[in-house]
Design a protein around this nucleic acid. Structure first.
Lengths: 206, 206, 206, 206
DNA sequence: TATGAATGAGCCTTCATTCAT
DNA sequence: CATGAATGAAGGCTCATTCAT
């Protein structure tokens, strides 16, 4: 990319970033159309290619940007002393909602990376995604191991949490307007339920 | 569609059906390319249009076919007397795995329908999808209500089950080869864990 | 072409010839579609190519056939002793109407040759068309020169006759059903008018 | 269509308009090929669709343009006080020849509209054609009724004029180069002949 | 002989990308 | 810097032609 992009007025930068993220998030890499971004951001077609060599360059930039921005906010706004898994997870979601106010499609965009199927796109951003995962892992660094009930498998538990939260997120984005209160409510109920479930004493199997 | 399609050699029919399902499942309706199907099925471009009026016609056919085939196998192979939610769910997955031996992409293809965003595609297949959902509901008809622990919310529970299972499925398809044993293993562990979790007596919240 | 075509049942031959002529006449060479002929004649696609090597071969055959058939009928049914231009013209039209009973599109098809723009088609049939023109000229061989009024130019007169008659013909074919009586009526009125006009003594120009 | 088309250099606009009119006039709507226009106008395929949404949009535009341009010239260059049918007809032809200098295919293109058979095309331009016909009718508004000889039927007379003139026009376009002098000469001879013929005192029928 | 399944070149149209202004 | 005109490869689809049965 062309570093001069950052000399643009912040407001224009953001229009472009938001436009790109929205179109990529909703359509996936290959089906995302330049023309739709042009309309979304109100910025001429040529300019996109002036700053970002090509479509994959733009994609890479936006992935990088979304992750860097989220990581930054994680660093700035996460209470470091958190030692509880569920509380930490909620804090992370709060940070995402914070980011969402500046870049409305960051949470969906990041979630959409898992669905991406274009080999070209995956190849280009795998490093960035790894950075993101690492940062999330780090956010959980101080979390104490949960006292799981004996029948709870770690990996399965993690999967359950992450897939379900992703499902809830996409459900919310599928609505006409994202209702942050409703979203955070569902997330909290879900996590609280998972907490109780995972720590409960088992009943006899039938 | 042209009913003569069914006069083709079964093997060729299946190559076409599998090719279409694979490409649709991996790319979504709009991004699925005829050329890719041509390569996948080893059948000329013109022939697709000889049997299926156009792309949406082919899509509709394949959705219908996948659902009909799955429903048929559900009817043939599901032990009817099942009254347990988790057992029933496992039986359904077993049927899907059975179907997968003839039509390897049916499970992923059906799961991909939830992600479909093209209005044209959704419009064309909404009826079929409803039939499918109804059939699944029916499979659960004899299931007795689960004795949930008091802190377990029905809707959240359902979401947890379905999103997680979908996640596990996609994970397996993301591998080079689908490992049925590994997949069913994960599903079973997950469900068994959910059973215990949901029925457990809660411990005190900290 | 394959001469065995003539071993087919006459009725089938005619269905094919009529189908081809209709589709060619209505669409021109390039836009005439094999599938439409198949529907029109109820004869499989392969058979057309079995008897006529390709589209241009079929076209050539049909042009030749239409012209030969018309010429034959001209020879058989034209009163040879005719010496009047207008009467001769009417007789020719009568013969065309006769031909039309066996091959309904011959008159339109022959008229459509003038409109043909495809170089390939023109190249292939120019000889045949010349034969046709020659035969028509011959039909007028015994016609005595008309005593035109002095202001009537031969070539212009001919053009007027032929273009107008063609217009009237196409008009009739544009109707749902060709009404032979109506057609011959119009032709006769037109010719009678032309006769009077061309032989009249001029009035003073204003 | 995209109004920016008119911001193009006039010369390029005209190359595109002329290319489209030529290909449409010679092949009819359905058979007119984009590739041929590309070659004719020396303008890339994509550009046509940049300015005209699709083929039917381009066709509509060109019909509209041809008619508007001709109407404009009719308004600018027709001696209004004309009261004679034949003179008026010649004046109209003169205007067409004037238009032809800028847009060589306008006369043929407009004549070709009568032959158009594609329902889609007809549907799209029927309004425009009606405007054109109305304008022509208007051009004849001041014309005094002709004193026809008693044996001259109005409708037949009109048909004779219009079919023959169309025939003469197409004949001229069929030549390698359109010879305006030759064309106008023929038209004038024809009309002068028709004038005399239609007003003459009849001789006895034989 | 007769069929229609099968093919692939070509058509209209879209879209990432380039480039003159 | 900014625009959008311009390009051409690729996508969905049609159609003359071939070929196994």
């Amino acid at each position: 990319m062309n570093e001069k992009f950052f000399d643009l007025k912040k407001e224009k930068q953001d229009r472009m970033i938001n436009g790109a993220m929205k179109v990529f998030a909703l359509n996936g890499y290959a089906r995302a159309s330049t023309d739709e971004m042009v309309k979304e951001a109100g910025v001429s077609k040529g300019l996109w290619f002036h700053y970002f060599e090509n479509k994959i360059g733009l994609y890479t930039f936006v992935v990088d940007y979304a992750i860097k921005y989220l990581n930054m906010e994680l660093t700035a706004d996460m209470p470091a002393e958190n030692t509880d898994f569920f509380d930490t997870t909620i804090e992370i979601e709060k940070v995402k909602m914070l980011v969402r106010r500046s870049y409305p499609y960051v949470p969906l965009f990041l979630a959409s990376l898992d669905k991406e199927t274009s080999p070209e796109a995956l190849e280009a951003v795998s490093n960035y995604i790894e950075v993101y995962r690492e940062r999330i892992r780090e956010a959980y660094a101080n979390v104490e191991r949960i006292e799981f009930a004996p029948y709870v498998d770690d990996r399965i538990f993690d999967m359950t949490i992450s897939y379900t939260m992703k499902g809830i997120l996409e459900e919310e984005y599928a609505k006409d307007v994202f209702d942050e209160k409703s979203y955070m409510g569902k997330i909290k109920v879900f996590l609280s339920q998972m907490r109780k479930m995972s720590q409960a004493a088992p009943v006899e199997e039938p």
